[in-house]
Amino acid sequence: MLEMRPDCERCGTDLPAHAHGAFICSYECTYCAECADALDDRCPNCGGDLADRPTRSKARQIADPASTVRRHKP
């Protein structure tokens, strides 16, 4: 199951699981569109590609909730 992280690791922007605009690498590092663009769609942690994160419907979040652990470190 894909971990739907709640924020951008670089700037802390909220990234709800049901909304578009999040980008992830194969390790599920998560960034907002602006930061992914600034990083040239390359994960600074592993060097992998950043791709659009799929959304999870609000109905499916009941059974499979998104993570609440924030990863941004100012």
Rank of each mutant, 00 (worst) to 15 (best):
M1V: 10
M1S: 10
L2K: 08
L2F: 10
L2G: 00
L2N: 02
L2P: 09
E3Q: 02
R5W: 14
R5F: 12
R5V: 00
P6I: 03
D7M: 02
D7E: 04
C8F: 07
C8K: 04
E9P: 00
E9C: 01
E9G: 14
E9L: 11
E9V: 01
E9S: 05
R10N: 12
R10D: 06
C11M: 05
G12E: 05
G12S: 06
T13P: 01
D14E: 13
D14T: 09
D14C: 00
P16S: 01
P16A: 03
A17V: 06
A17K: 06
H18F: 12
H18C: 08
H18A: 08
H18Y: 12
H20Q: 10
G21Y: 04
A22S: 11
A22P: 05
F23W: 14
I24Y: 03
C25P: 03
S26A: 12
Y27S: 06
Y27N: 07
Y27T: 02
E28Q: 08
E28Y: 06
C29G: 00
T30W: 01
T30L: 00
C32E: 04
A33W: 01
A33Y: 04
A33H: 07
E34Y: 01
C35V: 03
A36Q: 06
A36E: 05
D37L: 11
D37R: 10
D37N: 09
D37M: 05
A38C: 03
A38S: 14
L39D: 03
L39G: 02
L39F: 14
D40Y: 07
D40L: 05
R42P: 00
R42Q: 11
R42W: 02
C43R: 10
C43T: 05
N45R: 13
N45P: 00
C46T: 07
C46V: 01
G47K: 09
G48P: 03
G48W: 08
D49A: 14
D49S: 13
L50D: 08
L50A: 06
A51T: 13
A51L: 13
A51E: 13
D52C: 11
D52Q: 14
D52S: 12
R53H: 11
R53P: 12
P54Y: 09
R56N: 07
R56L: 15
R56F: 06
S57F: 07
S57K: 09
K58S: 11
K58V: 13
A59Y: 13
A59D: 13
A59W: 14
R60Q: 15
R60M: 15
Q61T: 07
Q61N: 14
I62Y: 11
I62F: 14
I62V: 15
I62H: 11
I62R: 14
A63E: 15
A63W: 15
A63R: 13
D64H: 15
P65H: 09
P65Y: 10
A66R: 13
A66S: 14
S67N: 07
S67M: 06
T68H: 10
T68Y: 04
T68V: 14
T68I: 12
T68L: 11
V69Y: 11
V69T: 15
R70W: 06
R70V: 11
R70T: 11
R71A: 08
R71N: 09
H72N: 08
H72M: 04
H72Q: 09
H72E: 07
K73S: 11
P74Y: 04
P74I: 00
